[in-house]
Amino acid sequence: RELRDAFREFDTNGDGRISVGELRAALKALLGERLSQREVDEILQDVDLNGDGLVDFEEFVRMMS
């Protein structure tokens, strides 16, 4: 339940997936600093298991585990 709530916080447009822009904004909020595009792309590449360029809830749960 906590992970579902956190996912909703990251998924600002409510489409059920976290985009690169949403991921960048969430990481900035969490870390208090802006990451480079390359750093965000590397994180997305590690987390995006199905290669669609987005983070779905299952991928998010794995990222947070």
Results as ranks from 00 to 15, higher is better:
R1Q: 07
R1Y: 06
R1F: 12
R1K: 15
R1L: 04
E2T: 09
E2C: 02
E2L: 01
E2S: 03
E2F: 02
L3G: 01
L3Q: 12
L3S: 02
R4H: 09
R4M: 07
R4F: 04
R4D: 10
R4A: 04
R4L: 02
R4V: 08
D5F: 09
D5K: 09
D5E: 10
D5S: 03
D5N: 10
A6D: 01
A6T: 15
A6H: 02
A6P: 00
F7D: 00
F7N: 00
F7S: 01
R8C: 07
R8Y: 07
R8S: 12
R8M: 10
R8L: 08
R8D: 13
E9I: 08
E9Y: 05
F10W: 09
F10D: 00
F10L: 02
F10A: 15
F10S: 07
F10K: 07
D11C: 02
D11Y: 01
D11Q: 03
D11T: 01
D11K: 00
D11W: 01
D11P: 00
D11E: 00
D11S: 01
D11A: 01
T12C: 07
T12K: 10
T12G: 10
T12E: 09
T12S: 10
N13P: 00
N13T: 03
N13K: 01
N13V: 01
N13R: 02
G14D: 06
G14H: 13
G14L: 05
G14E: 06
G14C: 04
D15V: 04
G16A: 03
G16M: 03
G16D: 12
G16I: 00
G16S: 05
R17A: 12
R17H: 11
R17S: 09
R17W: 07
R17Q: 06
R17I: 07
R17D: 03
I18G: 00
I18F: 01
I18H: 00
I18T: 01
I18W: 01
I18V: 10
I18C: 04
I18L: 15
I18E: 00
S19C: 04
S19K: 02
S19N: 13
S19E: 06
S19V: 02
S19T: 15
V20D: 13
V20S: 06
V20C: 13
V20G: 12
V20Y: 13
V20N: 14
V20A: 04
V20Q: 11
V20R: 02
G21T: 12
G21C: 05
G21H: 04
G21I: 07
E22A: 03
E22D: 02
E22V: 02
E22N: 01
L23T: 11
L23P: 01
L23F: 05
L23K: 01
A25W: 06
A25E: 14
A25Q: 09
A25D: 13
A25P: 11
A25L: 15
A26G: 13
A26S: 05
A26N: 04
A26H: 05
A26W: 02
A26E: 00
L27Q: 09
L27S: 15
L27P: 02
L27N: 14
L27T: 14
K28F: 04
K28C: 11
K28E: 12
K28M: 10
K28W: 09
K28G: 09
K28T: 12
K28L: 09
K28Y: 05
A29D: 14
A29M: 10
A29K: 14
A29S: 11
A29N: 03
A29W: 10
A29Y: 05
A29P: 02
A29G: 07
A29I: 05
L30S: 05
L30T: 11
L30V: 10
L30P: 07
L30N: 15
L30K: 15
L31C: 10
L31H: 11
L31F: 13
L31Y: 09
L31D: 06
G32T: 02
G32M: 01
G32H: 10
G32D: 04
G32R: 05
G32Q: 03
G32E: 02
G32C: 02
E33Q: 11
E33C: 12
E33V: 07
E33S: 10
E33H: 06
R34V: 08
R34A: 13
R34Q: 14
R34I: 14
R34F: 04
L35N: 14
L35C: 08
L35V: 11
L35D: 14
L35M: 03
L35R: 14
L35W: 13
L35H: 13
L35I: 14
S36N: 06
S36E: 12
S36T: 12
S36R: 11
S36G: 09
S36P: 08
S36A: 13
S36Y: 04
Q37A: 12
Q37L: 11
Q37M: 04
Q37P: 15
Q37E: 13
Q37G: 09
Q37H: 02
Q37D: 03
R38Y: 08
R38P: 10
R38D: 14
R38A: 12
R38V: 11
V40L: 15
V40P: 10
V40I: 13
V40N: 02
V40A: 12
V40W: 13
V40G: 10
V40H: 13
V40S: 11
D41K: 08
D41P: 05
D41M: 04
D41T: 08
D41F: 09
D41Y: 13
D41V: 05
E42K: 06
E42I: 06
E42R: 09
E42D: 06
E42S: 07
I43W: 07
I43C: 11
I43P: 10
I43R: 13
I43N: 13
I43V: 12
L44I: 14
L44R: 06
L44A: 15
Q45F: 04
Q45C: 05
Q45S: 07
Q45L: 12
Q45D: 07
Q45P: 07
Q45G: 06
Q45Y: 06
Q45W: 08
D46L: 04
D46H: 03
D46G: 08
D46E: 07
D46M: 03
D46W: 02
D46I: 03
D46A: 05
D46F: 04
V47L: 02
V47Q: 12
V47I: 05
V47S: 08
V47E: 07
V47F: 07
V47D: 05
D48Q: 15
D48T: 13
D48F: 03
D48A: 14
D48H: 15
D48V: 14
D48M: 13
N50G: 14
N50R: 11
N50T: 11
N50D: 15
N50S: 09
N50A: 10
N50W: 01
N50Q: 11
G51P: 15
G51D: 13
G51I: 07
G51F: 04
D52Q: 08
D52H: 10
D52T: 06
D52I: 08
D52W: 03
D52Y: 06
G53Q: 14
G53L: 05
G53M: 07
G53S: 10
G53H: 12
G53P: 06
G53I: 07
G53V: 09
G53W: 03
G53N: 09
L54G: 14
L54R: 04
L54M: 10
L54Y: 06
L54S: 12
L54V: 05
L54D: 05
V55I: 06
V55L: 10
V55A: 06
V55Q: 03
V55W: 06
D56F: 00
D56K: 08
D56A: 12
D56W: 02
D56M: 05
D56L: 06
D56N: 11
D56I: 08
D56E: 15
D56G: 10
E58I: 00
E58W: 03
E58R: 08
E58A: 09
E58C: 01
E58K: 14
E58S: 11
E59P: 08
E59W: 05
E59C: 13
E59K: 09
E59N: 04
F60C: 06
F60P: 00
F60T: 04
V61N: 15
V61Q: 10
V61T: 10
V61K: 10
V61F: 07
V61W: 08
V61E: 12
V61L: 11
V61C: 11
R62P: 03
R62A: 10
R62W: 08
R62I: 05
R62G: 11
R62L: 05
R62T: 06
M63D: 04
M63G: 06
M63N: 13
M64I: 11
M64C: 14
M64Y: 15
M64Q: 10
M64N: 15
M64T: 12
M64K: 09
